[in-house]
Simulated scan of single mutants.
Amino acid sequence: MSFAEHVQQSRQRLERDKYHSEAMGIGRSEAIDAVMPFEMGSEHQRIGVLLIHGLSDSPFTFRDIAAALARRGIRSRSILLSGHGSRAEDSLKVRAGNWRRQVRAQIADLQKQCDKVWVGGYSMGAVLATLEGLDLPSIAGLILWAPAWRCRSNMVWTSRLLFPFRKWHSVRPERDFARYSSFSINAIHQYYHLTLQVKRQLNTCQHFRCPVYIVVSEADATINSQFVLQQFLRLRQPNSRLVWYGQEELSEAGVLSRPGYLPEQRIRAIAHTAVTFSPANSHYGKQGNYRNCLAYVEDTTAFNRCLQDPDPWFSEYGLAVEGRYPARLTFNPYFEEMMADLGEFISDH
């Protein structure tokens, strides 16, 4: 379907199925608008970027990035994958093949209107972007935020065993209008199928066919960031770049290193959930109305201390701050630098 049809169909589905509670902090219609597919930039701009969100997420993932691209004369669209944006129960029936067909249809639609089309994705969305970027010669380049080519959790490969017997990997209170907090076994199982596909493509690939821009954190608790780094170094070309947030500076060609530990900003490490959002984001930003304390959801005392800390520290799952209960970081302290660099990178290629 066309992008206009995709927007219309998504609106109808969300109006019918979107879960909402007062704990989300905004009205239901606002919550629906926040997760809708969207386009930013002028129709006269000839460079386009298709943006694909991750597992359990929504197009809200790319609101800040799309606005920054538009200011630099780059048009972008962010799509809503089936089973997302509404209620976690809808992930019980999604299929990876449908996601791939959605992505390919929207690439084709954007290519009708732009001279060059880049494909960008976050986490699982970056896997979908990679599959198309390695397969379609018409794609101008790839932009990958925390690409989930390989996951840290054993739950991904064990999902193939659990899939016939269990519905849920985790069930948590749904307090965030922009993404699900609960994960179904089926959704993880479908993501697992995508990792098998991208593994085959990466293994048979000699080098990236098009320019690739990757942003990844060494401390990422969701994906295997070392695997991403290894694949980049193996497949890189002179026109590819990896932005690395880590403890030590990397001196490899094509790698731009930035410290992940920023004590002056009370940041212990840059989390998987942080890379696409501006510190000024009204929901996930430094003064945003949502604080990710899900690491302590089983401990009421710790959970409340994390939520109520007037001067919170931010970190990644599993990385402690002595005497504190750090929230999971949900904004990128290098957002402006990243977007300035990315805008030049796209324009130069």
Results as ranks from 00 to 15, higher is better:
158 T>E: 10
347 S>V: 12
10 S>M: 00
311 D>I: 09
49 V>G: 02
257 S>T: 11
338 M>F: 08
286 K>Y: 03
306 C>G: 01
51 L>V: 07
65 I>H: 06
267 I>N: 09
205 C>Q: 10
326 P>S: 13
50 L>N: 06
5 E>R: 04
95 R>Y: 12
313 W>T: 02
106 Q>F: 13
222 T>K: 13
126 A>N: 05
248 E>S: 15
342 L>G: 02
284 Y>V: 08
39 E>C: 04
10 S>D: 06
77 R>V: 03
14 L>G: 10
253 A>M: 11
80 L>P: 02
311 D>A: 13
349 H>R: 15
213 Y>I: 03
14 L>C: 13
263 P>F: 05
346 I>K: 06
166 R>Y: 15
63 R>G: 09
270 I>Q: 01
130 T>S: 05
28 R>I: 08
64 D>L: 05
78 S>E: 10
277 F>C: 02
336 E>Y: 07
206 Q>A: 14
8 Q>L: 13
228 V>N: 01
318 G>D: 08
95 R>L: 08
301 T>A: 15
47 I>C: 02
309 D>H: 07
252 E>Y: 14
136 L>R: 15
249 E>L: 15
54 G>P: 04
92 L>V: 01
322 E>N: 13
250 L>T: 07
334 Y>N: 07
72 R>D: 07
213 Y>F: 09
31 A>F: 12
302 A>Q: 11
253 A>Q: 13
45 Q>Y: 12
287 Q>M: 03
136 L>P: 00
96 A>K: 10
107 I>V: 10
181 S>H: 13
7 V>R: 10
240 S>C: 05
63 R>V: 10
77 R>G: 02
329 L>M: 05
274 A>Y: 12
289 N>K: 08
50 L>V: 01
278 S>V: 04
175 R>S: 11
41 G>T: 00
130 T>C: 01
27 G>K: 04
186 N>F: 09
254 G>H: 05
162 L>K: 09
25 G>Q: 14
310 P>G: 09
178 A>S: 14
286 K>C: 10
194 L>D: 02
55 L>A: 01
176 D>S: 05
258 R>A: 13
277 F>H: 08
334 Y>V: 08
135 D>E: 15
132 E>H: 09
